[in-house]
Amino acid sequence: MSGAAAALDRTVARVLRWGIGASIALLAVGVVLMVATGVDPLGPPPPPFDPTEIVAGILALDPLPFLWLGLIIAIATPSLRVLASLVGYARTGQRRMVVVSVGILVVIALSVALSSVAV
């Protein structure tokens, strides 16, 4: 394995570790707050995700924004990993892998677009 490939492996691994670490930390805080405030997970469904209420909710120690953020970071971490790979491949001039990376991100973007349109 070349030095560049090994370095890229380490970079991508770091992205995954930090992403999942942050996600689990936020989810854990959300769960603790759920227990503290007596939220019933099987009760009425929570209001839909609203990004404008995240900061205020966090300051109010509402469990919901912590949970939303944790979930979003978990779902986004694999895409961030692809983005890190894209940068690495572009730096080392591996054009075919750049195309593959862009292709994956296009599929993810399509996923967002098609789901949003269909809502």
């Binding site: 996600s23 689990i24 989810l27 854990a28 959300g30 769960v31 759920m34 939220v39 019933d40 997970p41 099987l42 009760g43 929570p46 469990p63 919901l64 912590f66 949970l67 939303w68 944790g70 979930l71 978990a74």
Partner: peptide, 9 residues
């Protein structure tokens, strides 16, 4: 999120 959070943790 109220189900996914505790389950994932």
């Amino acid at each position: 999120p109220y189900v996914a959070g505790p389950t994932a943790v």
